[in-house]
Design a binder for these strands. Structure first.
Lengths: 184, 184
DNA sequence: AGCATTAGCTAAGAGCATTAGCTTTAAGGC
DNA sequence: GCCTTAAAGCTAATGCTCTTAGCTAATGCT
């Protein structure tokens, strides 16, 4: 039994490899263990159970997404920032559709996930600063932006768009709707 | 062994009862069988397997949603029709959040589901008629509408909105964005 | 070098989906 | 009104999953 140097992050890495390669439904502890080169029960040394692993995957995705959005919004403001955020959002999902679709809803109170979500929200709020919305309106605007981006993302990631028309064009229309609506 | 008069629809009824009461994660064939008053393997006389049952639940939700949207849009056109559709969409999700969250993505080619989705799309397209969009733009507009409504719906149904601000108000902003964007 | 910690293992149990094969009910033709 | 037949239900059994318990061996610290 040579040690393989696993860690919670390593388990998440293996899990994401499985999800990316075979889809969210293929996420099983034995598959993850095989990918990590370890027997299944060994995973419990690093992760409490399957539910927690799912939450850690969600956390990872939120972190990766946050990083992209943060990079995209640097040095931009107003409509330009919102467009950049929405395009970066979709670009992440196009690059990692299975990973995005594997995100767990049902937020058991995982504090690190809450922190990561707050950082993502912070980026969105910063991008909305130029519109000079007051406190509550800012929240409503952020929700509208997030709903649009997330809705399109999930539908695209899970193959919900049947017709052959170009998805870029559809998404640009959606972005126009959001920026236009923010300008009031 | 008295007969209980089960049918595929009856199995879906039982499944939806479980999902509504205990959430999508509680959907298990033994739970459905218990709810239906039958031993687990008996379900296979009506449903091919668990994956098919999931698809049938999705089908049922799409059908129910289509009916609501159809009712809502009657006698309306333009912005009024779009507003009515979006409000009806959310009202369904508020009434049946677990059921909505249980919808299966990953559309294995279930022809009845495709037909139901087409009918739902037809209602949306009809509501967009007043904007006088040509063929491709019509599809893009329908996708934007659907993304917005679905994104907000899923986030709300799975508890994704953390802050205490009023959700009605957020959704009305989203509706305004969509109608405004459609008017160009 | 010695010791505590911990990453890994095997063995075992419970719950799930699914298949096979049997029994009984209900429906329809004579 | 029976008798056949299709189907609705059952029990038994298999294999996969997650999970726990308890052991062994590798690592890190002093």
């Amino acid at each position: 039994m040579p040690r393989v140097g696993l860690s919670p992050d390593g388990v998440v890495d293996a899990a994401i490899t499985i999800v990316d390669a075979e889809g969210p439904a293929a996420l099983t502890l034995s598959a993850v263990a095989a990918q990590a080169g370890v027997a299944t029960p060994s995973l419990y040394k690093h992760v409490r159970n399957l539910a927690e692993l799912r939450r850690l995957i969600t956390l990872r995705v939120v972190q990766e997404l946050t990083e992209r959005l943060g990079d995209a919004v640097l040095g931009r403001s107003g409509d330009d920032a919102v467009r950049a955020i929405m395009r970066a959002y979709r670009s992440y999902v196009v690059d990692h559709p299975a990973r995005y679709a594997a995100m767990d809803q049902a937020p058991d109170p995982e504090p690190r996930l809450e922190a990561a979500s707050d950082r993502l929200l912070g980026i969105i709020l910063a991008a909305l600063r130029a519109y000079e919305l007051d406190g509550s309106d800012l929240v409503h605007a952020a929700r509208a932006l997030r709903s649009s981006a997330h809705g399109f993302a999930i539908l695209e990631a899970s193959g919900g768009f049947g017709l052959p028309e170009d998805l870029e064009t559809s998404y640009e229309l959606l972005i126009t709707m959001v920026t236009g609506g923010l300008r009031r």
